[in-house]
Amino acid sequence: MEESKPDKREAILQATMELVAEHGFHDAPCSLIAERAGVAAGTIYRYFENKDVLIVTLYRELETRINAALEEGYTQEKPFRERFMHLVTGLLKFFITHPQEFKYVEQFHNSPYGVAFRRDRIINHSEECGVYGELFKQGMAQQVLKDLPLVLLFDLAFGPIVSVARNHILGFIQLDDVLIERIAAACWDSLKC
Rank of each mutant, 00 (worst) to 15 (best):
D27K: 12
G73N: 14
P112T: 11
G130W: 00
F102S: 02
H98N: 14
Y47D: 09
G130E: 06
N110W: 11
N50Q: 13
E128R: 02
F117Q: 03
G114A: 11
D27Y: 03
F84Q: 08
T64R: 12
A68P: 01
G130Y: 05
P112Q: 11
R83Q: 00
L91I: 00
L87K: 10
A28S: 13
C129I: 05
F95E: 02
E77Y: 05
P99Y: 09
R60H: 10
R65D: 14
N50L: 06
Y74S: 02
I55G: 01
F48S: 08
N110S: 03
A34G: 03
V115L: 13
V56Q: 10
R119K: 14
C30T: 08
E71V: 09
K51A: 10
R60K: 13
Y45S: 13
G38R: 02
K78N: 15
F48C: 05
N50S: 09
V88E: 06
H109P: 11
A116R: 10
E101W: 07
G114Y: 10
T75I: 02
R121V: 12
H109Q: 07
A68T: 14
Q100C: 02
L92T: 01
F80G: 10
K103P: 05
P29N: 07
F80C: 06
L58S: 13
K78S: 14
R121P: 04
D120F: 13
F84W: 07
P79H: 13
E72K: 15
V105D: 07
G42W: 14
P29D: 02
S31Q: 09
P29W: 07
L91R: 01
L58I: 12
E61C: 09
I44F: 09
F102D: 06
R81F: 04
G73L: 15
